[in-house]
Design a binder for these strands. Sequence first.
RNA 1: GUGGACGUAGCUCAGCUGGUAGAGCACCCGGUUGUGGUCCGGGAUGUCGCGGGUUCGAGCCCCGUCGUUCACCCCA
Length: 420
Amino acid sequence: MKFQAPKGVSEYVPPRSRAFEWTRDTLVSAIKHSGYQLVELPIFEDTELFTRGVGASTDVVSKEMYTFEDRGGRSITLRPEGTVGALRAVIEHGLDRGVLPAKVFYVGQFFRAERPQAGRYRQFYSVGIEAVGIDDPALDAEVIAIAYAGFRALGLTKFHLDITSLGDASSRAAHRVDLMKYIGTLDLDEATLARAQLNPLRLFDDKREEVRSLMAGAPILMDYLSEYSRDHFAAVRSHLDDLNIPYVINPRMVRGLDYYTGTTFEFVHDLLGAQSGIGGGGSYSGLMEEIGGQSLPGIGFGLGIDRALLAAEAENVVPVDEFASDLYLIPLGVAAKSVALGISESLRGSEVTCEIAFGDRSLKGAMKGADKSRARFVIVLGDSELESGTFELKHMASGATSSVTLTTLVQTLQQALSVK
RNA sequence: GUGGACGUAGCUCAGCUGGUAGAGCACCCGGUUGUGGUCCGGGAUGUCGCGGGUUCGAGCCCCGUCGUUCACCCCA
């Protein structure tokens, strides 16, 4: 019996795990830079939180959730997205009673029982933010700017930003009536009509050319926006213009979660396959109340870490292996190993990373190991060194050596490493 | 959930019209006793995804199954 990882999960092992860390940490630091604070949340929640928050008619809830019953008979679901869980925590801990907007971020894995595909996994990683309690176009713009900055910090350039406004509930309802009327006049197959019943906006997103051309004359939600929504959206755009963040207004953009209202956006990468959305988000005016909180507006986004990494690889911008130990110790014999362990221990508090050649490989083999691990410096610990107390510190790149003692080692290393 | 392609050493792959497996890289040892990256010599490595069938005989054919992958659907 050979065990394999469960179907469709994304997992990262060396050497690619370092690229994953880099992707995640780069996106997170863009977020922290704007003062968002971490909420470390459970990976499972009460099922009803998602059915109410995300919307029972969405694909995510209706057919993609990992739901099970726990021993107490409670219905539990592995989180398929981050927003509603984050808001539940905001409400539960009263973060929305303090300074507004309450600004939180989360990172971690999410679960959706879909058919796996390039860039689509059953367990995937996202990082997201939520800003709750203030309705301000400048906040919308900043949220978008943070995601944009994160992607740029990764070095991505071949992506674009789609934005639109979904307006408020009444304008959407009015549009929906007209849209359904229009769709009713079209000659569509049963499956497509069923999708239209669930969410007519979906048809704007259909990949088939014939459907696209049929939908070309359909009424556009943008034309139904209230004056308030229109002005709000104009203000968001003007902030983005001031920030020199390029975007395209895409009135046909569709989001799969029911809670979005007003400003919504999506980052799409140009070099990825069918799963090209690397991040998306928007504002949600009714969601807080829907899940039992105060009636407060909010806005946020989720960025796909797996997909951002795929994008960075496609653009060839992942930094080449910056990870390397500073010092590689090669002890010859038992006494030398003890000394090596001591040196490693004494370095633990410093910034110097240190590895030891374990086992009883030949010196040549150990040197090869040092080379493979791209160690910057090597010290061979043999009988003569132990006796004299002085060691040859070898700089691998140049081959140059200098002699150090136990007491001067740390200082010498730090000096050498600071100039590199 | 639907459809197509694929599944051979750690990795990338070869294997002719069926005759019980190979290359490159990586790995280990050695090329004078204690110093790497190149070069040379040597070495280990596979229930050919799994189960069944056809056949004297299957990695190559058939069925099933699991997984991967691409697309639809949907989305991060």
